[in-house]
Design a protein around this nucleic acid. Structure first.
Length: 580
RNA sequence: GCGCCCGUAGCUCAGUUGGAUAGAGCAUCUGCCUUCUAAGCAGAGGGUCCUGGGUUCGAGUCCCAGCGGGCGCGCCA
């Protein structure tokens, strides 16, 4: 068991011994903010004492009297207003590191109670190009899925494609009237976007075109053969584009069930909501009202439009039901931008009223916008949305410039491959580093900066470690992370060694925090600190030139750092490089 | 009008159940490459955490009011 878990368990037992009816789930152990206090601390006793009007220092000393952590810690210290400070015994620290070096763990433990979690993210629209608006959902969602998987949960990723709706009526009109077959063949998305742009302008100007679009949509929904064929073709062409992007990003989905998949379920669903008295007629449409929920009182959810068509609340309800029936998840996570908060509040509220018995946790994980350097929504110079493929191309191109400047003698193909990995990593990292709820300003210079909290910096730290192993002649180059020989005792004496070692132990804690709060930026910051601790160690503690025993000990530390860095970056969806 | 979010160093941003002396990068300044990749390290300066109240042992974090900004608010998704 990892030390902090051990301490936490013993601490909770001690608290229970002193206060048998206390809820100990919030009695947690955290790393100390300053190493001078120790390795771990708890401040839970102070809030516990406050809630019960006890003297916090007295409670702390009562708990300490019942607390036995001597296996792992030096005597526990009561500090300040009632903190408990824990200091790991050197043997406990070394033992944990050695367990990791033997491959028994990598500073995290599988969840005690694995859950089934559906993660819904990305969701691009058919016949349109993926653009910057999809990048955060895609990258965040993928990262959360990876984190949950690493922690031992059963994760199902589902890409809810926008493949149904009014836009297809318009597209069908334009497709039939003025499709440029050659252009379609050359660049399908651009042609479909051209068609859509043209016809949607026409619809605004000319009611007859709008009516024609409506009729095409009705025919499509009624199963008209030609319309279905065209629609299928649009989906197939779009998915080629999506798959290309996902491949570049290293993102995979277990399922891609578009909106159209749920179409047959919508009518019965609406029927049921009406029969159960949950939905009712309002201004010609069918709506669910939330009189009992103050924030939603003024915001009923429409589930059928006055023209009889369904909207996205209806589809999302059907999707939700399908997921419950198919996968029986404990939790469903929706990764979308902030503007959809009201929608998800409504969706969840309808569902709770419909199925009050359901225990499934529903989480809307929302994020802010990507802004240009002018502080306005990120656009190209000409004012168009930035295509994701262009963005990734530019990232790789800019990364190549940096790479070849740093390493001019590198053969071009090698440089290109490094640039690909660095460029994609930089874009992803820039997206994961800010608190997801804040808007962030997209800046190439910051993204690809070689110093500061960026992907290249982390990758560089990793590459430096790997370089040590090449020079050390331990392990083979084919194995990205060789296991090095272990001595029985790690020698952790230098300040830099201890700081690095202690930081390694916190990896699992951070992963859990990421999963609990859906915030990958915690992991970004952890890895940045890890890289910082490592480079300090690297500057001050020679590895290869040290005496044999110390050399081995330091190689172990290097190896563990590399493994955590690689695993951490992998969770962020970022590849590592053996050489930069 | 109502709701959600934001306001932290010159700039861009972190800030884990409220917790110990508010952090990082950039920019400015000072050192460090015959030594495992200097894409680096060590150090310095720089703060009314928007304002004003409140809660309490303790508030950047919670509550109330105000100011400034972004977004959303029935038939788009």
């Amino acid at each position: 068991m990892l030390p902090h878990k051990f301490i936490e368990q013993r601490l909770q037992q001690a608290v229970t011994a002193v206060l048998p009816d206390a809820d100990v789930t919030a009695v947690l152990v955290r790393p100390c903010p300053d190493p001078k206090f120790g390795d771990y601390q708890t401040n839970a006793l102070m809030s516990l004492a406050k809630a019960r009007k006890l003297n916090p220092r007295q409670l702390a000393s009562d708990v300490v009297a019942k607390l036995d952590v001597a296996d792992a810690c030096a005597p526990v210290e009561i500090a300040g207003a009632g903190f408990l400070n824990f200091r790991l015994k050197p043997a406990a620290l070394a033992q944990t590191l050695q367990g990791a070096a033997r491959g028994e763990h990598l500073f995290s433990e599988p969840a005690a109670h694995p859950r089934t979690v559906v993660v819904d993210f990305s969701s691009p629209n058919v016949a349109k190009s993926m653009h910057v608006g999809h990048i955060r959902s895609t990258i965040l969602g993928d990262c959360l899925a990876r984190t949950l998987r690493l922690l031992g949960h059963r994760v199902i990723t589902d890409n809810h494609l926008g493949d149904w709706g009014t836009q297809f009526g318009m597209l069908l009109v334009a497709w039939k009237r003025e499709l440029d077959a050659a252009a379609l063949k050359a660049d399908p998305i651009t042609e479909m976007e051209r068609l859509y742009k043209k016809v949607s302008a026409e619809c605004k100007a000319n009611p007859a075109t709008l009516e024609a679009a409506r009729q095409e949509l009705v025919r499509l929904q009624a199963g008209d053969e030609e319309n279905l064929r065209i629609w299928h073709e649009m989906i197939a062409l779009s998915r080629v584009q999506f798959d290309t992007i996902y491949q570049r990003l290293g993102v995979k989905f277990d399922h891609t069930l578009g909106e159209s998949f749920y179409h047959p379920r919508l009518q019965p669903l609406v029927q049921e909501l009406c029969t159960k008295g949950i939905a009712r007629e309002s201004e010609g449409a069918l709506a669910v009202f939330f009189e009992a929920i103050p924030p939603l009182k003024e915001h009923p959810a429409l589930i059928q439009k006055s023209d009889g068509a369904f909207n996205y609340t209806t589809t999302d309800l059907a999707t939700l039901m399908h997921r419950l029936e198919t996968w029986r998840p404990d939790e469903i996570v929706y990764v979308t931008d902030a503007r959809q908060q009201l929608h998800f509040q409504q969706l969840f509220a309808v569902f709770r009223r419909w199925h009050p018995e359901a225990k499934t946790k529903l989480a809307h994980v929302w994020f802010g916008s990507i802004l240009g350097e002018d502080g306005k929504p990120f656009k190209t110079r000409s004012g168009d949305t930035v295509k994701l493929s262009d963005l990734l191309d530019e990232a790789e191109e800019r990364a190549y410039k940096v790479v070849s400047e740093k390493n001019p003698e590198q053969p071009e193909p090698v440089g290109r491959e490094i640039a690909r990995i660095v460029g994609i990593a930089a874009v992803k990292y820039a997206d994961l580093l800010p608190n997801r709820q804040s808007d962030y300003v997209f800046s190439w210079d910051k993204l690809l900066a070689l110093n500061g909290n960026t992907a290249p910096y982390l990758q560089y730290a990793y590459a430096r470690i790997r370089s040590i192993f090449r020079k050390a002649n331990v392990g083979q180059d084919v194995s990205p992370v060789p296991t090095c020989e272990l001595s029985d005792a790690l020698k952790l004496d230098a300040r830099e060694e201890l700081a690095l070692a202690r930081h390694l132990l916190n990896f699992g804690l951070v992963l859990e925090a990421v999963a609990d709060d859906y915030r990958p930026n915690y992991l970004c910051n952890y890895l940045y600190e890890l890289a910082g601790h490592f480079t300090s160690f690297y500057e001050n503690c020679p590895v290869l030139k040290s005496a044999p025993e110390l050399r081995t000990s330091r190689l172990v530390l290097c190896d563990l750092t590399a493994r955590v860095m690689k695993q951490g970056l992998d969770v962020l969806g970022i590849e590592t490089l053996e050489q930069m």
